[in-house]
Design a protein around this nucleic acid. Structure first.
Lengths: 337, 337
DNA sequence: CGACATATTTACATCGATGTAATCGGCGTG
DNA sequence: CACGCCGATTACATCGATGTAAATATGTCG
């Protein structure tokens, strides 16, 4: 099989120097129309295509960024990935998508490993990363974190105000007269993750409404999948007092909960209210449709890509910034909408 | 800011030649334990990481493959991507994920563009590609197609037997006494895509059961999303004769249809049956849960990666192969399961 | 028509890593 | 003790493209 032609082959075919071919490829202005078309023809005739490795080696940039998320089959991340790719595209960047499975080791690899050295920067949505992992990271590699609030100053960060979001969702339920609200996926201790921030917002809303907090209503889950939501409902229903609302910390949990409620002969919003987070498409079409906290995904993606590009271009070690993106509560059938 | 160290810097630090460092990095066997650890220390001390561009330039391979799918927020593709990444991982490959939006231009770019020349090969799930695009493609770039049956011989291909799958799904509905089965997303003319193959299987089942075919029951859709399924049901219900089953050509359509039926006061399987394709997770938790044709996604991903790797390694222009992967009908509530 | 400015093209070095082949050094053997 | 052998190490060229700076062509003006 014929090897792929190199710039030299094109040069010989067109009767010019390799550098002239390079100039044509890169739209250098001082190339006569005649040579330009001759080179173009040669490229066409030989089926030449730039070898990116050679180019990168010389130019020092790949024009690619890494997006590392826990799991693509979690709809929120798939939708987010779509937006990030679109945002990157607008800026002429290509996205290398990576799944970490939420494992610390793989998140570290996203920060330092193969991809990180290969692409110009990384957008990471961490689950298990520890503060010290960020503190000791190689700051020559530009990074933007999504979702959880990072240690201040360790890296740029983009996310919604999770405490406020959970507070608003809880207020909505309280306003509907709900008083016994379970937090599915909630956490009181452990890492300062999204779950803890949202649980805090929930408690703030309770306190403001003078509704006593009941730790039994915080229902932990293994993961944030449909099945975990279903399982959690099973656990909740076995208790003697049934809650009158479920604040599920993401839509998958909420949808799994809806399914389990249905199996138990209960329905939202008749018997209790259900609210989720993320506004994934499935929640718009579920029966009942799902009330949810909708983060502005477009804005998240846009900010993340901009911040990253800034880091890449001014390699300087500026202060890390913290970008807070809008969110809004979308009230649908599952809580009376 | 200090530039990233090169292999030369490590060599100087360790007091050996650059090539020796390279040998350590690549686990060359004839390196004394002493030098090996000295080099390792130097690498550690300087925070050295291999520059992939340099390596690829020299080795001619990136160890990366491209996976190009229409849209990540279509759950089937997200789930498939997850499996492909896992399969690639097992073989030491990294996946560059690309969204084409189903646009021909971007699918072509996946075959020939930036990624294609950059990675070692491409797995493409085409929607709009024309036969001639494949016929004229640069066969030096290894490609595996997913989903639709390609022109024989043009490229390796992996997929389920769509005709048989649709036939079985239809037989299932017929066996339940359904006689007026609408095909949501079906197509009688146009490209030889998945939709046409599945419609053909549907017709074969009807014919075998001596149920007359009614072209009005083939309901076209703009795209294969939730909303299109909902819209299609709206159109179907405006007719005078209501069908007694919906064969939806993917799960998103089916779930959108379930939602629209609910809004119309109808329910599956009481008033009519609903069946989908793809077995996405949402269908296991919907109300009612969704009967669907489940392709073996693990097998699809595995075959695709193997075939591609074969192509990459034996660059020869062997015959293109056609891999048919298992599928099975999963009967759930929406058709009486 | 010559001097000089401007436009076009080219030679050469270089990015970082690694394959090839040559060199070096230590050890066993006759 | 010289020789041969083999494992360890190194010098050098090379992968493909492009930046730099110099060379060459073209054109303008007095």
């Amino acid at each position: 099989m014929a090897p792929r032609p190199r710039i030299k082959d094109v040069a010989e075919y067109a009767g010019v120097s390799p550098k002239t071919v390079s100039n044509v490829i890169n739209d250098y202005e001082h190339v006569s129309e005649k040579t330009r078309s001759a080179v173009r023809e040669a490229i066409e005739a030989l089926g030449y295509r730039v070898n990116i490795a050679g180019r990168q080696l010389r130019k020092g940039r790949t024009g690619m960024i890494t997006l590392a998320v826990p799991e693509l089959d979690v709809a929120y991340f798939a939708e987010l990935a779509k937006h990030v790719m679109a945002a990157a595209d607008r800026r002429g960047l290509t996205v290398l998508l990576h799944q970490t499975g939420g494992a610390r080791e793989r998140e570290l690899a996203a920060l330092h490993g193969f991809d990180a050295q290969f692409t110009d920067g990384t957008i990471l949505s961490p689950l298990s990363l520890l503060p010290r992992d960020l503190a000791t990271r190689d700051t020559r590699l530009p990074v933007v974190l999504l979702g959880e609030r990072s240690q201040p100053g360790s890296a740029d960060h983009v996310g919604i105000d999770n405490v406020a979001a959970a507070r608003e969702a809880t207020e909505h339920l309280l306003a509907r007269g709900r008083r016994s609200i379970a937090v599915v996926g909630g956490a009181l201790t452990g890492r300062q993750g999204t779950d803890r921030l949202r649980t805090r917002g929930y408690r703030e809303a309770l306190r403001a409404a003078r509704v006593p907090f009941d730790a039994d209503l915080v229902v932990p889950v293994d993961a944030f999948h449909w099945q975990d939501g279903a399982r959690a409902v099973g656990a909740v229903l076995r208790r003697d007092a049934r809650p009158d609302a479920l604040l599920c910390l993401n839509d998958h949990l909420a949808l799994g909960a809806l399914r389990a409620l249905h199996e138990a002969g209960l329905a939202a919003p008749r018997d209790l209210d259900v609210v989720g987070f993320d506004d994934i498409e499935a929640g718009r079409f579920s029966v009942p449709s799902l009330t949810t906290v909708a983060p502005d995904k477009t804005a998240i993606a846009d900010s993340a890509v901009s911040l990253l590009l800034d880091r890449i271009e001014r390699r300087g070690a500026e202060e890390a910034t913290d970008h807070v993106v809008e969110h809004r509560l979308v009230v649908r059938e599952s809580s009376g909408g």
